[in-house]
Simulated assay, not measured.
Amino acid sequence: MEPMTIYLFGSAAPPVFEVRTVIRDLQSRGAAVCLGLTPTAADWLRDDLESLEELTGRPVRSRYKRPGEPDVWPKAEAILFAPVTANSLNAWALCLTSSFVVGVVAEGIGKAIPIVAMPCVNAAYASHPQIDRSVETLRAAGVTVLYGKDGGFVPNAPGEKRAYPWQAAVEETLRRTG
């Protein structure tokens, strides 16, 4: 029996540096993981990309494939997009798909792929009204957004360091795969 395939996507926020641990956790629970990153997140992790490809057994993607090129990933049974920055969150809610990972999750809504997202924005960004609008738009589209006091990420003050609740995101993603 083939393992379930989970796409793990990340934006350029500090928790993206913990992605190796998340991949290992998902793999230990029977998932095959394909890692996708925004271009800036891929740049942040550029020294680790080769070892992350070895860990997942798949290319790490941060750009769209060219027309006619084969898809190098199997079909996703679920997508976990964490951390999601304000930029990626708002682009996704507005269907602005210039980024590969945003394009995949935007299309994933229409394909009815279970998607879990956990933003990573500080309280200054969170005070902008577009953040709440984007969260509500995505929730209304069927995305599980782990944000706010009812579970998931709670914004911290700018510069404040607090543990990112990866475990909540992993557990919810696995729950959504059945």
Rank of each mutant, 00 (worst) to 15 (best):
M1S: 10
M4Y: 04
I6T: 07
F9C: 14
P14V: 07
P15I: 06
F17T: 13
T21I: 01
T21H: 10
T21R: 13
S28V: 00
A32T: 12
C34W: 04
C34Y: 06
L35P: 00
G36K: 04
G36N: 05
T38D: 07
W44Q: 13
W44P: 01
L45S: 12
D48M: 05
L49S: 07
S51E: 14
S51I: 02
L52M: 11
L52I: 11
L52T: 12
E53S: 14
E54K: 14
E54M: 10
L55S: 01
T56E: 03
G57V: 07
R63V: 07
R63E: 08
R63N: 05
Y64F: 14
R66C: 05
G68F: 08
G68V: 03
E69S: 06
K75P: 09
K75A: 15
A76C: 10
E77C: 12
A78P: 14
I79V: 15
I79M: 15
I79K: 13
A82G: 10
P83C: 06
V84G: 08
A86T: 11
W92V: 09
A93N: 06
A93H: 02
C95K: 05
S98G: 15
S99Y: 06
F100G: 01
F100P: 00
F100N: 02
V101H: 11
G103L: 11
V104K: 14
V104E: 15
V105E: 13
G108A: 09
G108M: 03
I109W: 05
A112G: 02
A112Y: 03
I113Q: 07
I113R: 05
P119Y: 02
A126G: 10
I131W: 07
I131A: 04
D132G: 09
D132K: 10
D132E: 15
S134Q: 02
V135Q: 07
E136L: 10
E136W: 01
E136K: 14
T137C: 09
L138H: 08
R139V: 06
A141V: 01
T144F: 00
V145Y: 00
V145H: 00
L146R: 01
L146V: 01
G148I: 14
G148C: 13
G148H: 10
D150Q: 15
D150R: 15
V154L: 10
V154E: 11
P155A: 04
A157K: 12
G159T: 11
G159M: 11
G159A: 09
E160H: 12
K161N: 09
R162T: 13
Y164F: 15
A169E: 07
E172A: 13
T173N: 06
T173S: 09
R176A: 15
